[in-house]
Design a protein around this nucleic acid. Sequence first.
DNA 1: TCTGGGGTCCTAGGACCC
DNA 2: TCTGGGGTCCTAGGACCC
Length: 424
Amino acid sequence: MKPVYALFDCNNCYVSCERVFQPYLRGIPIVCLSNNDGCIVARSNEAKAMGIKMGEPYFKIAAQCDRLGIAVLSSNYSLYADMSQRVMSVISECAPASEVYSIDEIFALLTGMPGNLGEYCRQVKDKVLQWTGIPVSVGIAGTKTLAKLANRLAKKSARAGGVIDLAGHPEWIDSALKRVEVGDVWGVGRRYAVRLIELGVRTAADLAEKDDKWVRREFGVVLARTAAELRGTVCHDLETQPQPRQSCCCSRSFGDATGNIEHVAEAIREFSQTAAERVRNEGLVAGHIQVFASTNRFRQDVVHGTMSASAPLAPATADGARISKVALALVRGCRTFEKGCEWTKAGVLLTDLCGKGAVKRDLFTVADSRRSDALMSAVDAVNSRFGRHCVGLGLSAPEAGWRMRRERLSPGWTTRWDELPVVR
DNA sequence: TCTGGGGTCCTAGGACCC
DNA sequence: TCTGGGGTCCTAGGACCC
């Protein structure tokens, strides 16, 4: 039986999440910023029409936003994650199998389902809007890559009404491929796009027509799979069971640069506990830790520097106390810190992750004790109820200069009791 | 003055082994 | 004048995704 994939994708995801709880933002241009109020990461259709570009540093267009009356919001990831969960749960109940692909996308497997799948997906889309307030678009096709492409066209087409079904209309595939630039194909990034265009491959249709051996030789096996998927050959199956992650990184840009190693250490102490908490939440432990910091890579007029230090964690652990102790020791033992740099970013990377039950032990190491497990469970319980960093080891002041800027943050409408919307 | 964060996979090259 | 062959493992770097 021919496989059928549907890709559901939230329209302007973060903007739509904000609009659910601030209806006065509907119909006006609005953008959402990345962490530290750095870059534009989401735009409403009105903002797109005004020429606001994705990924643009905010400081460069702040005045323009002001002049054009564009509403600007700091990123509120706890809101977006919560809204995402609601959308995903509605859609996943409408299909026999599904794969959450990102915060705003989910693949649903519709293989063998009876009836008009385009019509069915339109009903699911309406249900998502009614139940969560989030508008979605849908692309349906025989491979994931084609479903992505169909979704892209569904978003742009006024006639499609948010749904394009290439599985039900294989005769549309050729013209669909011709209408999509090669750089907009899922799996073709900026570098590949430049080279492909130099080689005369301009559209998805051009890429699909290329000889498999040629693509493999010039670009490797990954792009060869993408090209095959455009021809209708499934190379990327649905991953219904999320694979256990291999690494966990917590890094942040600082609100204010600092030359003080103790400030960097403070940040890293907190990031290491956040990373440990994420790893614990997934029942994993880490066997290796790396800490790093860097200066502002964009500025020409300052001393540039990077520091990085790493150490094994033996036995592997997710104990925030142990991990933050090692992290601090790594920072303080790092010589490159002595160069008089202004640090603007730091982070912690946990790797060699494995299941908690699979920890290797030897005669000379002691596994995490039951006391450590109990302590971490208590910490997680308190923080889950009262907010992250409510309790922790050596916590820093909320107003510490290294903390990220979030000057236009909306309330935690769905995740914090004290920020619930009030109905009058 | 101000430029995000968090992932994965593939490949090439070096170290090391027999 | 001259330097094997074949394999594995690890790491760094480069590409991609959202």
